[in-house]
């Protein structure tokens, strides 16, 4: 075999390995954090405009969830998510929905909808991160989203059961990696 071709292939494979395991991974984590920061900032501005109190349980719980995902997002992978789905009991969606309804019952209807939208945006960001964190998965999934994009808030809004399952399981996944004292904060 031509030595030049062999060495060129070896260096290309080493470069690809470095790209896939380090550069792509770092890039996706940064992109995920940027996505969550933008949601958190929008929610902050919504509260700053007087639509919801900064100490309202719906605001604080959503912000805490965003903060913990920003901090521990590098632990959120599709493999770990799948393991949680396999090892943990299916979340009781009715209970979660009832809890959220109780938490937001004192808010005006448009604020309730807006806060739900922020929660859905976080779920969408998490799902997107889990799928796109692998370069090869990205190469397959990204072109498909041009025809049918599952990462849309409107799509999830029509499927509250899916959205709440994702949220609960995503919280469980990150919770597994949290220090003991921080785990209860993720609600």
């Amino acid at each position: 075999m031509n030595l030049y071709v062999a060495l060129k292939s070896v260096s290309a494979l080493i470069a690809l390995w470095f790209f896939v395991y380090y550069l792509w991974r770092d890039y996706r984590i940064d992109a995920f954090r940027e996505h969550l920061f933008s949601i958190r900032d929008r929610m902050f501005m919504y509260a700053a405009e007087g639509n919801i109190r900064f100490d309202h349980p719906a605001y604080t719980s959503t912000r805490t969830r965003a903060n913990l995902l920003i901090r521990h997002g590098h632990h959120l992978t599709l493999t770990r998510f799948t393991i949680v789905v396999l090892t943990h009991p299916t979340p009781d969606v009715r209970k979660i929905l009832a809890e959220w309804a109780r938490m937001t019952e004192d808010l005006p209807p448009d604020a309730q909808l807006k806060m739900l939208e922020f929660r859905l945006c976080i779920s969408v960001a998490s799902l997107q991160h889990m799928v796109y964190s692998s370069f090869f998965r990205y190469l397959i999934a990204r072109p498909l989203t041009l025809f049918k994009d599952p990462f849309k808030v409107n799509e999830l809004r029509e499927h509250p059961t899916v959205a709440n399952n994702v949220e609960r399981l995503e919280c469980d996944t990150v919770e597994q990696e949290l220090p003991q004292e921080e785990a209860p904060a993720l609600v």
Binding site: R33, F37, F44, F54, T60, R63, N67, L68, I70, R71
Partner: peptide
């Protein structure tokens, strides 16, 4: 928001 929480990055 004086009680603003942080992501601790």
């Amino acid at each position: 928001d004086p009680n603003r929480t942080s992501s601790h990055l």
